[in-house]
Structures are given as structure tokens and as C-alpha cells.
């Protein structure tokens, strides 16, 4: 079973790819999907620190709907929905929706990441161990997103990393 640290490493790897996809700009659908999978690993890291493991996406969602995680659920649900639309919704018929960009364009995805993925990250900090928090904040790749987590921001401000 993956540990908190394993999930943090995978979350950071997803974050790195997310930054590349956002910089490229041509794949808002995949960017949102990677953002969702980062959220999955961040949440699973928090659960691992609480000695909980989700056996499925459904099990994770049910856990997140519990009152103690309610704020997390709200942010997570935005990423979950957008990624499901990106992965499974296809419409070539009449109507306004023809591709994912009709739902969320690149700027929309950036806003979603800044608010909702950041919300998931912030929300899980309360549950992570000190090591987990350090991994999530300090090893999180920088750049491309306006929002830094607190420890990362401190690093950025000292000039050791560039955060735009």
C-alpha cells in the first residue's frame, strides 16, 4: 500500500506535468485531467497519514463527503467533474458543446487549478505529517501558476526559486 510520501512524490510528478501542459497550452483537457490526478494523490497522502486507504474512486469520494473533509470535497468535486467531462464527454451533434474547450478553455483551466487544486492542497495540509507537508510544499515544482503554497512562497521570496 502506498505511503503518504509515495503519494506526495506522485502528486509532485503530476504537478510537473501539469505545468508543462499549461505552458504548452494545447491540451486543456489533459491539463485538467492531470490536475485531478494530482488532487487524487494529495488526498490519498492525507488519508495515508490518517491510516486510511481508498480502494476506489467511489470510496474516496464517499470519504471526502464526510463532514470533516467537506471543504476538500467541494474543491475536489470541481476537478473530478471537469476531468470526467474531459475524458468521457464527446458530442458531434447540434448544440453548444463540441469539445472540452467549449466547457473550459486554457485560461479557465488555469483559474480552476489556481483556485480548486490549490484548495485541495491547502485543505490537506491540516492532515499531513510534518514530512508530508514539507514534501508537498517544498518539493512542489514552481512556475506557471500564480499561487504558491506557504512554505514554497517563503522559498520563492528568498529567491531560491522562481515563482511567477
Amino acid at each position: 500500500m502506498a505511503t503518504e510520501g509515495d503519494h506526495i512524490r506522485l502528486a509532485n510528478r503530476n504537478h510537473e506535468l501539469l505545468l508543462k501542459l499549461l505552458a504548452d497550452g494545447g491540451f486543456p483537457d489533459w491539463a485538467v485531467t492531470v490536475a485531478f490526478y494530482k488532487a487524487v494523490h494529495v488526498v490519498e497522502a492525507a488519508f495515508a497519514s490518517l491510516k486510511v486507504h481508498s480502494a476506489s474512486h467511489t470510496a474516496r469520494e464517499e470519504m471526502l463527503k464526510r463532514p470533516r473533509f467537506k471543504g476538500l470535497w467541494k474543491d475536489y468535486s470541481h476537478l473530478l467533474t471537469a476531468s470526467r467531462i474531459a475524458r468521457y464527454l464527446s458530442s458531434s451533434g447540434a448544440g453548444e458543446f463540441h469539445s472540452f474547450s467549449d466547457y473550459l478553455d486554457l485560461e479557465g483551466v488555469k483559474k480552476l487549478v489556481r483556485k480548486r487544486l490549490y484548495g485541495v492542497e491547502q485543505g490537506t495540509l491540516a492532515f499531513l505529517t510534518t514530512g508530508g507537508k514539507g514534501g508537498l510544499e517544498e518539493d512542489r515544482p514552481c512556475g506557471g501558476l500564480a499561487v504558491c503554497l506557504p512554505a514554497q512562497l517563503r522559498k520563492c521570496q528568498t529567491g531560491s526559486r522562481e515563482c511567477r
Binding site: 464527446s90 458530442s91 448544440g95 458543446f97
Partner: peptide, 8 residues
């Protein structure tokens, strides 16, 4: 879901 046709 956003507005789509029934087949979607």
C-alpha cells in the same frame, strides 16, 4: 454536464 445531445 454541459448541454449536449442525447446520444452523447
Amino acid at each position: 454536464l454541459p448541454i449536449v445531445g442525447g446520444e452523447a
